[in-house]
Amino acid sequence: MTIVTRFQDQNGEYVPLRVGQHDYPQYPNDHDDGFGVRHIQDGHNEVDTDSIASTMILGECIYQSGNDTHYCAYPSINNPLYAVVYTLREDWHSGDGEPVGIITAYPVSTLL
């Protein structure tokens, strides 16, 4: 899958943002849900690369071992304005030996 750009995380790892794949709304619990640019555009309309970069470097990040993902929120997990979810897991489907990368990125609603 084509890499659009790369971002650096807090550990110095380069995380790709791929073209990715669209969501499959007919299978909402399917493990083949979308990721990358197509998924972000499907659910959140735009890909804000400045916010992705800031969140990955300056945000608070946690690793979720159950699904092998990193969740970063800016400015913090408890008070997020923007969130990025990514994995460093490689997928043989890509054929390039790089991680899957960014799964999704989105502004967090601050509606009360």
Score class of each variant (00 low, 15 high):
residue 21 Q to D: 15
residue 56 M to P: 07
residue 42 D to K: 05
residue 2 T to Q: 14
residue 46 E to N: 11
residue 52 I to P: 00
residue 108 V to G: 02
residue 73 A to K: 12
residue 73 A to C: 15
residue 4 V to F: 13
residue 11 N to K: 12
residue 34 G to D: 05
residue 13 E to M: 11
residue 28 P to Y: 14
residue 73 A to Y: 02
residue 19 V to P: 03
residue 105 A to Y: 01
residue 112 L to D: 01
residue 43 G to R: 06
residue 89 R to P: 07
residue 20 G to I: 00
residue 49 T to R: 09
residue 88 L to T: 00
residue 95 G to D: 09
residue 94 S to A: 13
residue 58 L to V: 09
residue 46 E to C: 07
residue 106 Y to F: 10
residue 73 A to D: 04
residue 6 R to M: 13
residue 13 E to G: 09
residue 86 Y to G: 01
residue 45 N to K: 14
residue 78 N to F: 10
residue 39 H to R: 12
residue 31 H to A: 15
residue 27 Y to N: 05
residue 19 V to Q: 13
residue 81 L to I: 00
residue 111 L to E: 07
residue 63 Y to A: 10
residue 101 G to R: 00
residue 79 N to E: 05
residue 3 I to P: 01
residue 16 P to R: 02
residue 82 Y to C: 08
residue 61 C to H: 08
residue 75 P to S: 15
residue 59 G to N: 01
residue 102 I to D: 00
residue 51 S to P: 01
residue 1 M to Y: 07
residue 83 A to S: 12
residue 74 Y to I: 03
residue 92 W to L: 13
residue 111 L to F: 11
residue 39 H to G: 01
residue 61 C to Y: 02
residue 63 Y to D: 06
residue 109 S to E: 07
residue 23 D to T: 04
residue 54 S to E: 08
residue 33 D to S: 13
residue 57 I to K: 14
residue 111 L to H: 06
residue 58 L to H: 11
residue 33 D to G: 04
residue 48 D to S: 12
residue 62 I to Y: 11
residue 103 I to W: 04
residue 98 E to K: 14
residue 32 D to M: 11
residue 7 F to M: 08
residue 5 T to M: 14
residue 89 R to M: 15
residue 68 D to F: 08
residue 42 D to M: 13
residue 95 G to I: 09
residue 16 P to E: 01
residue 69 T to G: 06
residue 38 R to T: 04
residue 90 E to S: 06
residue 91 D to M: 01
residue 65 S to G: 10
residue 109 S to D: 14
residue 85 V to H: 06
residue 103 I to A: 03
residue 17 L to V: 10
residue 37 V to G: 01
residue 57 I to D: 03
residue 107 P to T: 02
residue 42 D to L: 08
residue 62 I to S: 13
residue 63 Y to N: 10
residue 61 C to W: 02
residue 75 P to M: 12
residue 27 Y to E: 07
residue 68 D to V: 10
residue 104 T to V: 06
residue 109 S to M: 14
residue 58 L to M: 10
residue 47 V to P: 00
residue 27 Y to T: 04
residue 10 Q to I: 09
residue 38 R to A: 12
residue 76 S to G: 07
residue 82 Y to S: 03
residue 52 I to F: 11
residue 104 T to G: 02
residue 79 N to S: 12
residue 51 S to G: 02
residue 37 V to A: 03
residue 98 E to N: 07
residue 53 A to S: 15
residue 104 T to D: 02
residue 93 H to C: 07
residue 56 M to S: 07
residue 61 C to K: 05
residue 12 G to H: 14
residue 51 S to E: 14
residue 93 H to D: 11
residue 30 D to W: 11
residue 17 L to Q: 03
residue 62 I to R: 14
residue 97 G to R: 08
residue 83 A to N: 14
residue 26 Q to E: 11
residue 75 P to D: 06
residue 1 M to W: 09
residue 65 S to E: 14
residue 75 P to V: 03
residue 109 S to C: 08
residue 46 E to P: 04
residue 64 Q to C: 11
residue 45 N to R: 15
residue 6 R to V: 11
residue 3 I to F: 04
residue 46 E to H: 09
residue 32 D to F: 09
residue 47 V to Y: 05
residue 12 G to I: 05
residue 46 E to D: 08
residue 75 P to N: 10
residue 27 Y to I: 01
residue 45 N to L: 13
residue 104 T to R: 02
residue 100 V to E: 00
